[in-house]
Amino acid sequence: MRGGVRGLASTLAIGLLIGAVAGCGGSDPQQLRVSAAASLRSAFGNYAAAAFPDGQIQQSFAGSDQLAAQIEQGARPDVYASANTQYPDQLYEKGLLDKPVVFARNRLVLAVPADSDIRSLEDVARPGVSVVIGDPNVPIGSYTREVLGRLPKSESSGILDNVRSQEPDVTSIIGKLTQGAADAGFVYITDVRAAGGAVRAIQLPDSLQPEVAYGIGVLKDAPNPELARRFVQGVEPGGSGVRYLHQAGFLPPG
């Protein structure tokens, strides 16, 4: 009798496990999954909240490289938005993404905690300053290396010597600054705005600015292509989402 009850319990447990796994795997036809660069968090969040019904848009924000790798490994969101054009173009060439379009631009800044004494790039090159930048694979990391490459050798090597951590996305660079762990970091101007006063931006001259263009596209086998195209059209010029990009500090694509 006891064995019978236990046997029943374990059969039930197996059934529950299978049911749970199957239940999580399904995708709702009315839902749209968006994989977007971490720097798009507030702009896309506001856009989705304003233009789509509650809970219809599921967004996952991370490093653009990480999201692209997930798609290459078989993950199927409906929309992919990257902080560069390289990763969407690569996915397009591999037949995983419809032709991507550039929908926004951004600028790099030097970000420091609000109460910092740092005023310029020269200050950051001084010994003892701790700097965080993006990992070379994440767009912010490669843009940052472009900026440093345009500086005089002495200054760029001074800054590189001060780099204490290579973070996987912009969110964690900002995190290291707001937690007081680091003195300065290179991020997008939009990240400083999103941090709401906790960090301050030091502008970089135009001569140092890299070309920061954001690409977006609908996945080739998107589970919900129609809704996906509507989402993408909304962030293209004239769309209903452009104002949220603008509010967040993004520049128009052209």
């Binding site: 692209a68 790798a69 490994q73 694979n137 951590s165």
Partner: peptide, 27 residues
């Protein structure tokens, strides 16, 4: 480790952090 110590090759980038950094470009 990532939150507290950061990620820098040779200093704080342990094998799991290196795997995470590499996964994105070199699966």
């Amino acid at each position: 480790t990532l939150m507290f110590a950061g990620s820098f090759p040779g200093t704080t980038q342990t094998a799991p952090l290196a795997i995470f950094a590499e996964f994105n470009t070199d699966f």
